[in-house]
Design a protein around this nucleic acid. Structure first.
Lengths: 216, 216
DNA sequence: GTCTATAGGAGGATAGAC
DNA sequence: GTCTATCCTCCTATAGAC
């Protein structure tokens, strides 16, 4: 169990009870491997070391438990991207290359946290069954990243750092390969496989992309 | 139910019994929406209109049912890509653009079949729980496509149609965006949403890619 | 090949004592 | 906040008649 992470409940209050945190993290682990429907309350509480009935003192239902997991993931995702109002300032201080590399570093810090990686997998597994999982995937991950990058590339073009392609096209060309590679990265991490090849592919992609769009 | 599709059982024999086919297609539909663990034998047989016990006359277990679904999906996937021995001949008759566009047409024919789209979603859902789903995703979809494209780009370079980048890099740059976009396409189809934007993104990607790598 | 009947366990969830 | 005890439903799977 991660010692220093804080979780919020549905009212936005920090969760302090040790068993409640244990339930959350055990559920995250099991859901990410077997899916929500493949895991029973019984299995979670057995692993935590409490009785089934005790879980209901912390969460009203199995579904609420998943809801709290997703709520906290939304918070964590929010920290990957720079706030839009800081975009212009950041791009004044960095060249395009640095800016994009910093984005990858931020993302890597996020996904290399085992808890985040697990919830990312839960979102993938549950996207067709659960509307909340789906909205996290579509709105918080895909759309948010693409529109952030669209603004960033528009600014880079304004600065003359990048050739004047449509910013939306640049965002898609830059990000979609990374989405595909992240899926693979996440699966390899799950299997404890070596991820150096796919990480190299990510780096190669950024280099290939920039070599064709930068003005310098 | 699709009238003309044929399914094979685990021994490679065609499945002719109507109820057995109904069970398969009902299971495909339900698994693709709720996941394997989220669907019961009871639910499947209720929809088919038979008793639970009758299902076991056709499939030894729920797991075997999923196994037969995956077996038939492997066959269907095999038809997307050109056999490697026909690659050289095809590239003599087509320019790079035509060749890649034909690939997208082939793939679109595959994924626009509702049954294939559903099994594609089952594979996504079950990739962490089920080793067979995982091997379909990694070996039959990702690796097979990338190594096919690597050969194709190597030939295009040989023919002078494409600039001499490493073929593996070209394959990754070409295909990973499509993987990402297919995920989105498949989700939008599931939600009966308009897919024209993401389809346009696929076309834009191919054009963007070719404009930077073709020699002409 | 489909049925009725049933086994035997696992599922989510609650009541009430401490 | 955790426990024991319990509810009732749903689960996969089998036996045996027709």
């Amino acid at each position: 169990m991660s010692e220093y992470r804080t979780y919020l409940d549905l009212n936005g209050n920090p969760i302090v009870n040790t068993n409640k945190i244990k339930i959350l993290e055990t559920a995250i682990d099991l859901f990410s491997r077997k899916g929500y429907s493949g895991v029973s309350i019984r299995e979670i509480t057995r692993e935590v070391g409490i009785k089934e009935s005790s879980l209901y003192n912390h969460f009203a239902s199995k579904e609420e438990l998943l809801g709290v997991i997703f709520l906290n993931f939304r918070r964590a995702i929010g920290e990957i991207l720079l706030p839009p109002e800081m975009l212009r300032g950041a791009l004044k201080q960095m060249i395009a290359e640095q800016f994009l590399q910093q984005g990858v570093i931020n993302f890597k810090a996020h996904i290399d946290d085992p808890i985040n990686a697990r919830i990312w997998r839960i979102v993938t597994i549950e996207q067709y069954r659960d509307p909340l999982a789906r909205s996290i995937l579509v709105e918080d991950i895909i759309q948010r990243t693409l529109s952030f990058l669209e603004s960033a590339f528009a600014l880079m073009i304004e600065q003359g750092a990048v050739k004047p392609h449509p910013p939306k096209l640049l965002a898609a060309e830059y990000q979609y390969p990374l989405f595909g590679m992240i899926t693979e990265y996440n699966l390899q991490k799950y299997l404890d496989q070596d991820t150096s090849a796919i990480e190299q592919s990510m780096a190669d992609h950024i280099e290939f992309f920039l070599s064709h769009v930068r003005t310098a």
